[in-house]
Design a protein around this nucleic acid. Structure first.
Length: 665
DNA sequence: TTTAGGG
DNA sequence: CCCTAAA
């Protein structure tokens, strides 16, 4: 029992309210995914993933930790590639796994590629279509199925198959493309230029129990040529996808610690991380260090083990903030969107064909691999040519015991969760979001020559259902879906589509500006479910959990700080204020972490700094006249308590001479 | 990492 | 909300 200060504050109980039933959460269970028909592309990915997983596992067991070796699998692929025998669809495993890569290599540079080559490239098309355009998937799926089910499958290319199906290209298709591929390599083109990055790493890597699936840039959405705006969900002409090399990368990352634990071997794993990982990690660090808490938008329901609970890794202080989180091994332990936005940068009308030459670069803050053109014409119109969007990096962690099928579903769900609700578009200038929809491009400076290369577009999850809560294992173990920021995304009307010329994305200024909705309309209608536990822990679970994807700055990484997006404003509800007041009454004003733990333990979007700030504003609010207050009115009764507690604790603090009163039992 | 305050 | 010095 909490010993309360004796100034007569009454105890109140936050009325318990039920958490929104899981059944109402979209995609609450992936057994029956709503987009089954769209699983195809991700099944491809997952097939690769599954195979790589197998490979790395078997290798790990056989080779122990004798690192410094590429996986035999990798060797074989590399070797085949040197011999020009690699099919255009390439999977590659880098052993010891910190980062096994699988790459769809579909760069068909030559327009002379046979139609079969184009069909071949449909592998990528599927990915892209799935990403944004739902209507295309069935068509692409047929293509894939045709390949997969073909009798001509080359069984020896086992690195792209799983137990269920082969994802391989028929030989005749392969051969017809072979010359192109081979030539490409022999001409000194970097393998990475085709999305294939040959690892020269001789690093040691350990295997992590839960494999983390890292999809860096699974898709590029081509808006050139025949393709129209992805926002309008129109059919994508498939052929247009085949002309661009993509960097589709699957990276498996293993956990050093777990591996070491299992093997009793110590390596300097971090130091040996491949660049991809360093980059991954750096992004993550940057984001987390900025409190860019990537609250998961979804949890995954798994299928493999019912006795496995869920242990979301919310952040470093999870041990403190996750009192009840399962200690079980987890099927899907963590999912984070590191890049929570899809960014397109303009290149100021300069060359925009420079698809990133390396997966690393693609991850970098420096988004110099421009994918959009911007041109100011003499008629004072600004023409935007958006070449591609990139799907943000996803991190998915699954245990080794996860089935390939579950991995597939996980990948699919992650992507669908991110994009399934549609996307909104933000406009970035100098990396900062232009929030005012009602100012002109001229006012923003977009049309200024010097800003041509400072413009970017951001894709953001756009719908109410963009963040389904999915978790693995026993449903009761699933923690509350993490509340996320309300979108500040702006809805693009179809009017933009209408404004588009038939074969290229040209957004006319007027439409761009005027068709956007007001960005503030979202935060106000956020619906929150409030739950309390026996300890008056209050959690708000916005049903509209559509936190924008992280913004990838368009500028130089040295200016990264300029591009950190501000968190979406989330006004405190009266209930939250009540809980805060309650906690402060008991704990005082100098123990915000305790306040957080007591009353907002599950509200990950409220940091102790937030609570402290809110208290500060509450005190201020209580002091000013009611007519000066803004926002949702706080009951005067609460404000009175704020003032009382503030006065009490100020006095108390003074008397205690800074000593923190020990009120807890 | 937390606290405390200014911006 | 952000940033950050200071503890």
């Amino acid at each position: 029992m909490v010993k309360r200060p004796d100034y007569g504050f009454r105890v109140f109980q936050v009325p318990p309210t039920a958490r929104r039933p899981r059944s109402t959460r979209r995609w609450g269970h992936s057994e029956k995914s709503p987009e089954d028909g769209q699983a195809c592309a991700f099944e491809l990915l997952a097939s690769l993933a599954g195979k790589l997983l197998q490979e790395s596992e078997s290798s790990a067991s056989s080779n122990a930790i004798e690192g410094n070796h590429h996986h035999a699998f990798s060797h074989s692929v590399v070797e085949k590639e040197r011999q020009g025998e690699v099919s255009p669809l390439i999977a590659k495993g880098v052993h010891n796994g910190s980062c096994a890569e699988s790459i769809f290599m579909t760069k068909m540079e030559s327009e002379k590629s046979s139609q079969k080559c184009l069909e071949h490239a449909e592998t990528d098309c599927v990915l892209e279509c799935v990403s944004v355009n739902n209507s295309c998937i069935s068509e692409c799926r047929e293509k894939i199925d045709a390949h997969v089910n073909s009798k001509d499958l080359r069984l020896e290319n086992k690195f792209v198959h799983n137990s269920n199906r082969l994802v391989e290209i028929p030989e005749d298709v392969r051969e017809s493309c072979d010359a192109n591929i081979k030539n490409g390599f022999r001409q000194g083109q970097e393998a990475s230029n085709s999305g294939f990055k040959e690892s020269t790493s001789d690093d040691k890597f350990s295997l992590k129990d839960p494999l983390e699936l890292c999809i860096n840039s699974p898709a590029l959405i081509d808006l050139n040529g025949d393709v129209r705006s992805p926002f309008c969900r129109e059919l994508f002409p498939k052929a247009s996808f085949s002309r661009h090399g993509n960097n589709n990368r699957l990276g498996f990352r293993d956990d050093d610690e777990n591996f070491l634990r299992r093997n009793g071997v110590r390596t300097k794993s971090k130091a040996f991380r491949p660049p991809q990982h360093i980059a991954c990690r750096r992004i993550r660090q940057m984001l987390t260090s900025k409190h860019r808490k990537v609250t998961p938008n979804l949890k995954y329901y798994g299928h493999s083990r019912t006795d496995e609970g869920v242990k979301p890794l919310y952040r470093k202080r999870k041990t403190c903030y996750s009192f009840e989180r399962s200690r079980h091994s987890t099927l899907f332990k963590r999912r984070k969107f590191f890049r929570r936005s899809i960014v397109i940068t303009s290149d100021g009308g300069l060359s925009s064909d420079s698809v990133s030459n390396s997966p690393i670069k693609g991850m970098d803050v420096d988004n110099s691999n421009s994918s959009a053109k911007l041109h100011v014409s003499k008629d004072s119109h600004v023409k935007f040519s958006i070449k591609s969007f990139r799907i943000p990096q996803l991190y998915i962690e699954v245990p080794r015991t996860a089935t390939v099928g579950s991995l597939k579903r996980t990948v699919k769900e992650a992507l669908m969760a991110m994009l399934g609700g549609g996307v909104h578009v933000g406009v970035l200038l100098h990396g900062k979001k232009v929030r005012d929809d009602n100012i002109t491009l001229r006012q923003t400076g977009v049309s200024c020559e010097e800003n041509l290369n400072k413009l970017g577009f951001v894709l953001e999850p756009g719908s109410l259902q963009a963040s389904p809560a999915v978790c693995v294992g026993e449903p009761s173990r699933c923690k509350t879906s993490q509340p996320t920021r309300s979108p500040e995304a702006h809805v693009l009307d179809s009017g933009i589509t209408d404004a588009l010329p038939d074969s290229s994305l040209l957004i006319k200024t007027g439409n761009l500006v005027e068709s956007n909705h007001d960005s503030t309309s979202f935060s106000t209608d956020t619906i929150s479910d409030k739950i309390t536990t026996n300890d008056r822990v209050l959690v708000t679970v916005p049903t509209r959990s559509t936190e924008p994807l992280a913004v990838v700055p368009a500028g130089q990484k040295t200016r990264y700080s300029e591009f950190v997006q501000r968190r979406t404003r989330r006004p405190f509800s009266v209930s939250e204020v009540e809980a805060l007041v309650e906690a402060v009454e008991e704990l005082g004003t100098g123990r915000w972490r305790d306040v957080k733990l007591r009353a907002f333990e599950n509200a990950d979007h409220r940091t102790y700094v937030d609570l402290k700030d809110k208290w500060k504003t509450l005190v201020h609010t209580a002091k000013i006249g009611p007519q000066q207050r803004r926002g949702e009115p706080v009951p005067q009764e609460l404000l009175d308590r704020v003032l009382a507690a503030h006065a009490y604790w100020s006095n108390h603090q003074a008397k205690q001479h800074g000593k923190v009163p020990k009120l807890e039992p």
